[in-house]
Nucleic acid binder design. Structure first.
Lengths: 241, 241
DNA sequence: CGTCCCGTTTGCGCCGGCGCAAAGAGACGC
DNA sequence: GCGTCTCTTTGCGCCGGCGCAAACGGGACG
């Protein structure tokens, strides 16, 4: 992990620091530690003491929780501008999951003590963190309800739609999930197996709704996916070509 | 809902306000609205604008999220001393679930604006809220992993163990969950049906692990339940009588 | 360029648990 | 006390999806 000089412009873009004045931002920049993180790096591990508050400047980080039997849940993908590991610092002090760099990244971090002082001095930071953690709580609650009450196909549709919103990139024939996403990853987000995900995606591909690829999904008919997710009648889907 | 005079002692006991000095607590008491809430009351509804931050002084509140198809998830039970609906106020401003009084309750609330001002003036409140919401996020993430990766029996065991920690009351032959808890409630916490919960509990009852009853569960052998939850070899369980 | 590894796809038997149906017991209101 | 409603229990057929196995193809690496 290679240290870098903090870039004030990118720190200013972090959601955690929105609404702060120039003096506050200057202090935040002064105490920030910025670095490159190579693809595949474990930034922190489940069960470790939560010593640092992290945020991502560039790249993509996967947050994965592992149970005692080795089974994994993909909790979340972190994109540029987002914090991670911060809630743990203020809630119990143990990271509840691993943070893995999916691609080469640029990250920034603060010690727990520094962030605590910043929050006491600038309550806006604490309120922003509360907003972020509260939204994540709502999302996870929604996923819990989906997993409790919906069949796999709908769950996969919901998961893909969330990913499109978070990491969708327009390409020629649809919207691509803009980072490597395997069938196993999708399975670990939706409580199923890679085989089931593969079968579902193959079926949708046959209907022109998605286009698959190795660690890759492109959504060609988002509205069809919404209909599946919401268990609505399917619109007629002309085969586009 | 019958207004009451705020009781400073019970407000002081709220987790949200721990670590505050007397001046802060006096201000909190001044702006608090306390009232009785009858059993069965809907305190707020899913989809409503999140206008009030709530906390419970006495009683038990169930937080339930309902999907578009009417299927329900029991998100959480709120006990005395706990806040509820507060995260929603600071995260998007819409309540994501209903809050229902399970028994007669005493509740307290503040307007969103008042709580926002209190948090700006006393950052400790925001940090406490962050701690509480962060712990809830961790719990829901853990439940999501359990639901994704464990069979029903283990999930029910985990759910009962959580309830024991939260609302367990020692009685003559074990630990009772100290509020009305139906098989349907347990099912809605664990992503299964009431029939499956009933079958599991009947089986455990036959082994002396629990004792059932109408809207009632008493855990007689907590260690056996832990072994089930963690998929450990079962200890020999002598039939106590 | 060749080889190896990993990800994807597909067939299929099996199983956990859903959900219908019915019976019984307890709580509640008149 | 009686009637009604709700909750719990249990039998059982059915189905969604798990997980084993095998084949194929693409990408990474030497």
């Amino acid at each position: 992990m290679t240290p870098l000089a903090p870039d004030p412009a990118s720190l200013r873009g972090l959601r955690l620091f929105s609404g702060l004045d120039a003096a506050a931002l200057a202090e935040i920049v002064r105490s920030a530690h910025t670095r490159r993180i190579g693809k595949g790096t474990t930034i922190f591990s489940q069960g470790d003491r939560a010593a640092l508050c992290h945020a991502l400047i560039d790249g993509r980080v996967k947050i994965v929780q592992t149970g005692a039997d080795g089974q994994q849940l993909v909790v979340r993908y972190i994109g540029a501008g987002e914090m991670f590991g911060t809630a743990a610092v203020f809630s119990g002090g143990i990271y509840p999951a691993d943070a893995l760099a999916m691609v080469d990244c640029v990250g920034v971090h603060w010690t727990a003590a520094t962030m605590g002082e910043l929050m006491e001095r600038y309550p806006r930071i604490a309120l922003n963190a509360l907003d972020i953690v509260g939204r994540r709580l709502q999302e996870v609650q929604t996923r819990l309800r989906e997993l409790s009450t919906e069949r796999v196909e709908r769950r996969v549709a919901h998961a893909l739609l969330r990913l499109v919103r978070q990491a969708g990139r327009r390409v020629g024939n649809g919207v691509e999930i803009d980072f490597p996403l395997s069938r196993q990853d999708i399975a670990e987000m939706t409580g199923t197996t890679l085989h089931t995900v593969s079968r579902i995606l193959s079926g949708w591909e046959g209907q022109g709704i998605v286009e698959g690829g190795r660690q890759q999904v492109t959504i060609r008919q988002p509205h069809a996916l919404v209909a599946i997710a919401e268990d609505l009648p399917r619109p007629e889907t002309p085969e586009e070509k």
